[in-house]
Simulated scan of single mutants.
Amino acid sequence: MTNTLECQRQIDHSDLELLSVCAVSSVPEDFHTASSDQALDAEAGADVILPCAAEPRAVGPEDLTVEWIVLGHEERTDSVHTFKNGRDRNKRQMASYQNRTALFHDELQNGNMSLKLSVVKASDSGDYICVRTSRTGQHYAIVKLTVRVRGSKPEISSDFCEEGWCRLVCESSGWNPKPTADWLDDQQRNLNSEVEKVTLEPEDGYTVKRRLLVAEGGNSTFTCRVSEKDHVVENTFHI
């Protein structure tokens, strides 16, 4: 048996209903899929395949139930996709996933229960659980998906100037995951600045804001750079 990460929900093995607490505890050794500590990254707008596979069993599609659920969303149901009694049954599917999910029906009896998720967006990020139920037993595993979104070009403004000093404000929004912001001088050296402030809106992503105090009339150029891994955007301000 191979241990998986602790979850915010628990699967009731009798009827696949989600309970409020506890954890997914283990995955049988014949169940092969991406583990929770192997993040699957995708760019916003792309189609992705959440991998889920088990050793083939002598089970026809009509005897197989496959349930994909996601943890941590605020909608009343956590269902992403359900296959049961030989067909898709998505009456309980979350509204945000409608018309965006598909199983590979021809591959189910070969143990391939991967889910295709189309046109992914930041709010799709999360821990997905794949549950396979048949007369041979029940198996499950977790896939962690992170959808990366590059935010806006930083906007730079000055919110006050007095006694020879000005405070510059850099702000960029629409990021996922959380970015970092840095102020640089005209030699591309990092400058000491106020601690960045980061906020999150579920549908709009992360917004980062960072302020810098500079001398007024110094004839200098300052750059605000916002980044998250290989996503980098920047803007300059001359004072």
Results as ranks from 00 to 15, higher is better:
residue 161 C to L: 05
residue 62 E to S: 10
residue 51 P to S: 12
residue 229 K to P: 00
residue 43 E to W: 03
residue 21 V to Q: 13
residue 164 G to R: 02
residue 34 A to Q: 05
residue 239 I to L: 11
residue 74 E to V: 02
residue 130 C to G: 03
residue 174 G to A: 13
residue 116 K to A: 12
residue 126 G to A: 05
residue 85 N to Y: 04
residue 45 G to H: 07
residue 168 L to I: 09
residue 214 V to C: 08
residue 233 V to P: 03
residue 22 C to E: 10
residue 5 L to H: 00
residue 167 R to G: 00
residue 236 T to K: 15
residue 88 D to I: 04
residue 84 K to Q: 14
residue 36 S to M: 12
residue 127 D to Y: 09
residue 141 A to S: 14
residue 124 D to Y: 06
residue 34 A to S: 10
residue 215 A to E: 14
residue 54 A to W: 00
residue 227 S to N: 08
residue 53 A to P: 00
residue 110 N to E: 04
residue 231 H to P: 00
residue 78 D to Y: 11
residue 188 Q to S: 15
residue 228 E to A: 13
residue 114 S to A: 12
residue 29 E to H: 10
residue 152 S to D: 13
residue 232 V to M: 05
residue 233 V to H: 08
residue 210 R to A: 07
residue 91 K to W: 12
residue 112 N to R: 02
residue 43 E to A: 13
residue 92 R to Q: 08
residue 60 G to E: 06
residue 183 W to Q: 05
residue 153 K to S: 11
residue 56 P to E: 08
residue 112 N to P: 05
residue 158 S to E: 13
residue 170 C to V: 06
residue 85 N to E: 12
residue 60 G to N: 04
residue 150 R to L: 10
residue 94 M to N: 01
residue 238 H to L: 12
residue 223 T to I: 14
residue 25 S to H: 14
residue 25 S to N: 15
residue 127 D to M: 07
residue 73 H to T: 13
residue 69 I to N: 01
residue 86 G to Y: 05
residue 234 E to I: 03
residue 147 V to T: 01
residue 172 S to H: 10
residue 13 H to R: 15
residue 9 R to C: 06
residue 223 T to V: 12
residue 114 S to K: 04
residue 62 E to D: 09
residue 214 V to Q: 04
residue 9 R to K: 10
residue 46 A to G: 02
residue 142 I to P: 03
residue 227 S to C: 01
residue 116 K to I: 08
residue 151 G to Y: 04
residue 215 A to S: 10
residue 135 R to T: 13
residue 207 T to Y: 02
residue 10 Q to A: 15
residue 102 A to L: 11
residue 45 G to Y: 05
residue 109 Q to N: 03
residue 115 L to H: 02
residue 219 N to P: 02
residue 149 V to L: 05
residue 219 N to T: 09
residue 92 R to C: 00
residue 168 L to G: 06
residue 143 V to L: 11
residue 72 G to C: 10
residue 125 S to H: 03
residue 106 D to H: 04
residue 30 D to K: 09
residue 66 V to P: 00
residue 184 L to V: 11
residue 166 C to Y: 06
residue 57 R to E: 10
residue 93 Q to R: 08
residue 206 Y to G: 01
residue 124 D to M: 05
residue 239 I to G: 01
residue 80 V to I: 15
residue 58 A to I: 07
residue 98 Q to F: 11
residue 138 Q to P: 00
residue 230 D to V: 05
residue 119 V to F: 08
residue 143 V to I: 14
residue 141 A to R: 03
residue 225 R to N: 04
